[in-house]
Amino acid sequence: MLSAQGFAATFKYLSMFRDGLICTISLSALTVLFGFILALILAMIRLSNFNVFRFLSTYSQRKLLQRGGFVLALSRFNPLSFFANVYVEVFRATPLLVQLFIIYYIVFAGADLPNFKLFGFIRFDRFLPGVVALSLNSGAYLSEIIRSGIQSIDGGQTEAARSLGMSQLQNMRFIILPQAIKNILPAIANEFVTIIKESSICYTIGVQEIMYAVASVKGATFSIAEPLVIATCVYFCLTFPTSKIIAHFERKMSAGDKRNGAEATNKKRERKAKMTKV
């Protein structure tokens, strides 16, 4: 049970929680970054029409081959999209813990990772498999979110952009993604918060994040309740601002949503133009 002495004993080890906090933040931040990039690539692949066997359809049309049937199906087969689909389904259908263990004990078993320490205490050879497992997992989830966001945008937007001479890439960058990301921000916030919380699973392979600190303090003080209370507070202080910050961006991006909303000012547009100029 909670006791004053327990807290007093636990507070002696606050530096462990500080280290755990730094580790959890870097773990989540890297996961968000790599997961998002992976998800963007996966979503693009799944929406692409890279039909390598397209040439077969002309034979089918010329009746050289039987109409319909296997050849026509093959001509519409997109291998990249197929493998991306398999990837997403596998990673969504298996537990994160299993994925983490497979990556740590099997995939990285033979790899001789450099044994240096990040920030002087995070063991890189455990940290890296953790980041990889979390990124691969969250990439699968985020790609579903991004795909639904892209598909939620009216086809007329693409038609308008393409009819103005924009390429598919420009259409994605300037027209579709800004609108899609605005629509899916709540879901993205959810996923980011999930990443922070699920990073605690890396404790099982010895990454020194917050739960690792809890276990260490427990071992030193023989009390578990107090460290857990502190860990709860630390996690909450991480996730709550994250969702608030994303909600702020959501408001910012919804400029063109309200009929009675303010018109943009010249100053605002100038600033935006400067920001987007790369």
Binding site: D154, R162, S163, I175, K182, M253, A255
Partner: peptide
Amino acid sequence: DKHRQKMGMVFQHFNLFPH
């Protein structure tokens, strides 16, 4: 894309970029 630049198009539902 080059040829589409020279063909302006106006749609039934306007298709302005809302953002």
